[in-house]
Simulated scan of single mutants.
Amino acid sequence: MKTIDRFLARLAAVQLENVFNPYRDICPIHDHAESAQIRLQSLRAYLTLAVQQGVDSIWFGRDLGHRGGRRTGIALTDEKHLPLLAARLHTRGIRKATASEMVIERTATVVWSMVEEIGQLPFMWNAFPLHPHEAKAPLSNRSHTRGELSQIWSFNMELVDVLKPRHFVAIGNDAHVALANAGLPCSYVRHPSYGGQADFVAGLRRIYSEHCAANRTGALASQLELID
């Protein structure tokens, strides 16, 4: 799809100081020459199939982590869970990009346990879809700045326009504030890191219980309208 190709070409061209762009940059420690291109291909497959199959929810995290999305190019997904995403989408276009051994990320593990429990595959993204790191410490994690977020926010709005989800879930305060400031109504759930796992799990269970109930009510109303 031309829209997706244009979106990805612009995303892959982004260069910011102390920010690793997994669709453009090569990690000298863990990558090989084709790693960035593989990550870009994985995101292309993910986006294309999401558009084709439809998206009910987008889960927004804060930014890519050095053990997860920096390596895979897929938000909230580490290399252990990358094959689960590929299997859910029935594609071979999503694959491991790094040259080093598989790395597991705690956040991705908790997130994917809830994807499996809920039984629905959301589209997973981040308010800041790249990996911000400390100066001279490329394998560290830090929060993006307000200025960095403003430079890439148009990508998020374009993604929302392309996917047209019915529901947004903000994972953590930073994602919640970013979505609220953009006027995107969302459900909030605590981030699973730093002792937040139990609240994250309970929050998603509550959200999806309510969301499924609302969907059933909407479906029933549509059926009654057809009868009338």
Rank of each mutant, 00 (worst) to 15 (best):
148 E>T: 11
158 E>S: 12
105 E>K: 05
5 D>H: 11
146 R>G: 06
199 D>L: 08
135 A>S: 04
118 I>M: 10
6 R>N: 13
14 V>S: 03
17 E>Y: 10
194 Y>Q: 14
174 D>H: 04
68 G>E: 00
78 D>T: 02
101 E>C: 04
13 A>D: 15
49 L>T: 07
82 L>E: 05
98 T>R: 01
206 R>Q: 14
26 I>A: 00
73 G>S: 09
93 G>K: 07
69 G>F: 06
131 H>K: 03
65 G>I: 04
199 D>I: 08
137 A>V: 12
203 G>Y: 02
194 Y>V: 07
171 I>K: 09
141 N>S: 09
5 D>Y: 05
32 H>Q: 09
143 S>G: 15
135 A>P: 00
13 A>K: 10
61 G>K: 13
158 E>Q: 10
5 D>F: 14
106 R>I: 01
93 G>V: 03
49 L>Q: 10
134 E>N: 12
70 R>S: 07
126 N>T: 08
94 I>H: 06
134 E>Y: 11
66 H>M: 04
167 H>Q: 14
205 R>C: 11
99 A>R: 14
218 G>W: 01
41 Q>N: 13
148 E>C: 13
105 E>N: 15
36 A>H: 07
16 L>W: 03
176 H>Y: 11
80 K>P: 04
193 S>K: 10
9 A>W: 03
21 N>C: 04
165 P>H: 11
203 G>H: 06
165 P>Y: 09
174 D>P: 03
169 V>D: 10
171 I>T: 11
6 R>L: 13
185 P>Y: 05
150 S>W: 09
67 R>D: 00
